[in-house]
């Protein structure tokens, strides 16, 4: 075979390529540019999703490579949806999700409202408030286990100081009644600053002229808050709820470090439960079905929510 490129002018190659590219239609050129991205998307997102759906219809176990994989149809889905333990886990997740959202929105918006006012040391306070969200969740979970320690924990001592109770008389992460609140408190401590920042952006986007016009109309501060501040900051608040909602639906690291899902299964959120099924019990097919159900739930809820968000923004 001869190499017919020998002796060619090197500058000719780019020209030839340029002619070829010039020969492509706009549509073809667009495909050339987006094809790598589409390929990556298919390889990294779509293929695993389809593969997971297929696995969810089998009894496949990733730790038994030699075992026969049997088609079980919708049996895994049926078992999940009729398993009281999984519903219990969903309930624990709902409790965590609802209370963290409520507290983070209320406290986050309150902090943003205060920080939005001009005062000395404003920047310093903002920096101090956002510090918790800069920490790793695993680290936060770990050090809060010490704060919650009945014998040496600062949290117990603070509560004891205000209530007069014996600090060793209650265990935040060892008591079935307190543990669900223990994880809510830590997540709120860590992520309220995030909600505050989004709300702050919303508050600062409201033009001063609107408030000035309201004052000319002698609107009270209370009325200004309900008719100007809240409606105009609402899309930002809803965005914060969306972000935190999705994040907390798949909460794992913080809670594993804090309680390990205990006591019993009282703080075993769905993501922890799913991890146990997939990588401790190695019921891969079952766990895949579980993951598909969670995905559909989050995707469905998020889609409805985004539509509502868009409607609020259009108003």
């Amino acid at each position: 075979m001869t190499d017919d490129t020998k002796g060619r002018n090197p500058a000719a190659a780019p020209l030839a390529l340029g002619r070829k590219v010039r020969g492509l239609s706009d549509r073809a050129l667009a495909w050339v540019f987006i094809a790598p991205t589409i390929f990556l998307l298919l390889a990294i997102n779509i293929f695993p999703l389809i593969w997971t759906v297929w696995l969810s219809l089998t009894n496949y176990r990733a730790n038994r490579l030699n075992a026969e994989v049997k088609w079980v149809g919708l049996r895994n889905y049926e078992r999940i949806l009729t398993d009281p333990d999984i519903w219990y886990s969903m309930q624990a997740t709902a409790h965590f999700l609802i209370w963290t959202l409520v507290l983070q929105v209320l406290i986050g918006f309150g902090l943003a409202y205060l920080i939005n006012r001009k005062f000395k040391g404003n920047d310093l306070w903002t920096t101090i408030i956002v510090l918790p969200m800069m920490l790793s969740p695993a680290v936060v979970g770990n050090f809060w286990t010490f704060l919650y320690q009945p014998q040496i924990g600062l949290f117990n001592y603070v509560i004891a100081f205000f209530t007069g109770a014996d600090p060793a008389s209650f265990s935040m992460i060892g008591d079935v009644n307190l543990a669900p609140w223990a994880i809510v408190i830590v997540d709120t401590w860590m992520w309220t600053p995030f909600v505050m920042l989004i709300c702050l952006a919303g508050l600062r986007s409201i033009p001063d002229s609107i408030y000035e016009a309201a004052e000319c109309d002698r609107a009270s501060a209370w009325r200004q808050f309900w008719t100007i501040t809240i409606p105009m900051a609402l899309p930002f608040l809803m965005l914060a709820v969306l972000f935190r909602g999705i994040e907390n639906f798949k909460m794992f690291d913080l809670v594993v470090q804090l309680t390990g899902g205990g006591p019993g299964s009282i703080t075993e959120l769905t993501s922890i439960n799913l991890k146990r099924e997939a990588f401790e019990k190695w019921r891969t097919g079952f766990a895949s079905a579980y993951a598909v159900i969670l995905f559909v739930t989050v995707f469905g809820l998020a889609s409805i929510y985004v539509k509502a968000l868009n409607k609020v923004k259009e108003r």
């Binding site: 038994r64 333990d85 079935v176 006591p263 019993g264 299964s265 401790e280």
Partner: peptide, 23 residues
């Protein structure tokens, strides 16, 4: 057994639920 991890996790949940959580 090859399924020891599944057997173990079931025991972990049942025992912790009763002993620690008091269910």
């Amino acid at each position: 057994e090859p399924s020891y991890a599944t057997l173990l996790q079931a025991a972990q949940r049942r025992f912790h639920d009763y002993v620690v959580a008091g269910n």
